[in-house]
Amino acid sequence: MAAEPLLEVESLRKVFPGHRGHPEVAAVDGVSFTVREGEAVALVGESGSGKTTTARIVVGLERQTAGEVSVCGRPREPAARVTTRERRRRGREAQIVFQDPYSSLDPCQKIGSAITEVARLHFGLDRAECAARLADLLDQVGLREQHASALPRTLSGGERQRVAIACALAAEPRLLILDEAVSALDVSIQAQILNLLADVRERTRITYLFVSHDLAVVRQVADRVLVMRAGRVVEEGPTQRVLDQPQDPYTQLLLDSVPRPGWKPTRAIA
């Protein structure tokens, strides 16, 4: 693996201030990892593990308390204000797709406009180029051209998630973060979206950072896994190895908790 490190996270720490008598919480507590160009890495954990906070810091939606994040070799300072130039460059470096397809699209904006808006911002396309890019992106995510003039309200959850992916891809990011992007979808739609992500990766060599609680999904999409618990990484390694021969007892517990044929739920293992 001689690929360049695309995302470097070093001793990342995020403390949320406590309020109303609650103590402050370290949501992310000393997390370090590297994602190389073209890799698909998954952050796995349960709620409160800090996986989502980590992802949000990477794309700049939260500011870290301490630690360093570098994308494409350039550190992302946790500054309150960034220049227009810097903001757009960051947009072309990393994009994110959220979990809930119902709230991640502007309800007032037509699908086509949502997608071309991003493409125009980053690449200053004229009208014809915009139309071509829109057709290309819709095709990539498996939507039809008629969808361009639809409002999000008229689309199903799976279709909305395709639109969200198209919007993210419109910036041609090198890193795409998927924050539980398939966990709100029906089983039969989930498979379609996972395949779509696999296709995109094959075509563009994009780098993925999955944030997920679903080990089956992770096994399907990720090359490498980081298991997080209470703000720390407890185990890291190639997907196959971590999920087949877990070293950490918590990883084992997670694996044992997944319902599967022949599985019986057991009590008080934690």
Partner: peptide, 26 residues
């Protein structure tokens, strides 16, 4: 606080643009 506004931030739009184009219509 909704994801569509957060997505627009990550996409690289300025605060002013997001407010005028996304927040106000909603």
């Amino acid at each position: 606080s909704l994801p569509y506004i957060e997505a627009a931030k990550v996409q690289g739009f300025s605060g002013r643009y997001i407010c005028l184009r996304h927040l106000l219509p909603n």
